[in-house]
Amino acid sequence: MGTHSVPATPAPPEAERAPAGGWPAVAAVAAVSFVLVLSEFLPVGLLPSISHGLQVDTGTAGLVVVVPGLAAAIAAPLLTMAARRLDRRHVLLALAALIAVSDALAASASGLAVMVGARLLLGLAVGGFWAMGAGVGGRLVPPASVGRATALITAGISGGTVISLPLGSLIGHVADWRAAFVVAALAALLTLVVLGLALPSLRPTGAVRAAALGSVLRRPPVALTLLIAAVVFFGHFTAYTYITPYLQQRAHFGPGTVTAVLLGYGLAGLTGNFLAGLSSRSPRRVLVVAALILAAAVVLLTRVHDEPAVVGLVLGWGAAFGAVPAAAQTRVMDLAGQDTDAALALLVTASQTFLALGSFTGGLLTDHAGTTAAFALGGSAVLLSVLVPAGHRRVRG
């Protein structure tokens, strides 16, 4: 062995250091996104059972989907600003715990008021997580892997959709609807433990203030993307919230067939999310194409009665919407630069506000004119979102 000294290896620049957490932490955040969406949309497959159990109309029972959306829309920017100096690890753990509390409270709800209160708590978790958790993938893996990390986290959306509808439909058929919320609460507790073990400390990247939100909104490309996402969410949830009554009453599917179709919808959504991740270099184009397919599928469902056609259109609908959240989030993050947290908070506000408005509008139409009317309006609204960019270019020209 030589006696000469070996020069010390210089510390790598901050940008080149391996981020803490890595893929286990990304997977843990993705698991929370999965349970969050599972909890948010679990009632969609249970609306008939919930309305019967709480002794309210189907449209009124739709409040269990409306309330989380409204709460999330308000909570996203407020929680982002309130938590601007807090370690993101602590914030995300608190939000994950809130999911478990909400599901447990929903499982024990004796009336609509308690159920709405439980869903209000979930809305706080939805708003906070999508504003502050959906974008942390870029802080957990090297820069070259950011796109895959973001796609994995947003895949939780499609994964939750895969499970929520068929799980709700199946449990509602073989047991009481409350059992579905018990399952969701247990899943939330499990993800809370996993997140606590895997997620490292994540100091806030900067203070998010009201001025930053206004600055992001004043950028036309960002504002346009938010508008497109809002209209797509409105149209989608005007119809989607009432897909179970549609399949039962309009398509005349039995419980087993409904569960199978909803599972197919969710699996198609996973495929759409995967394809959107592969096309991350052109998220605007993905968003427009997905909206066109979604609009066509929902409108055609008001006209067809043949079982294979209905199933095919539902699968196409699932694939199209599966691409929307990932494409919208990628597009907004690309445009926002250093204001990612502010932009994501605004995306949550826009999407969740119009999610709630869509569910509420679809409920009114379902109660007074049937699910066909809700589907017709929903599909037309999504088609309108495709015309927004064209109209914007014409005005600018």
Rank of each mutant, 00 (worst) to 15 (best):
G370F: 03
L95A: 04
V232E: 06
G379V: 09
F233Y: 14
A376S: 11
G254P: 06
M115S: 11
F274V: 12
V311I: 13
R89A: 09
V91M: 05
H52T: 15
V182S: 03
A376H: 01
P204E: 06
P7A: 14
R284D: 15
P255Q: 07
R303W: 10
L70W: 05
A107S: 15
L195G: 08
R139P: 10
A30W: 03
V6G: 04
L383S: 05
V304T: 15
R88L: 06
W317R: 01
L38S: 08
G256P: 03
T349H: 00
D341V: 09
H392G: 04
A134D: 00
P283D: 10
G277C: 11
E307N: 01
V231G: 04
V183Q: 06
L344D: 00
A309L: 13
H305A: 14
E40M: 08
A106L: 13
L292G: 07
T349W: 00
V288R: 09
A336V: 07
G45N: 09
T161N: 10
V222K: 01
V26L: 07
A343F: 07
L165P: 08
R139N: 12
G156K: 11
G397I: 01
R219H: 09
V194Y: 03
S158L: 08
A144T: 14
Q329I: 12
T238E: 01
T191I: 13
G22E: 02
S359F: 10
V208N: 01
L192I: 08
S164D: 01
A179T: 11
G159N: 05
S169L: 03
L186W: 04
G214L: 13
R178F: 02
A343E: 07
A109F: 11
L347E: 12
T238W: 00
G272Q: 05
E16Y: 01
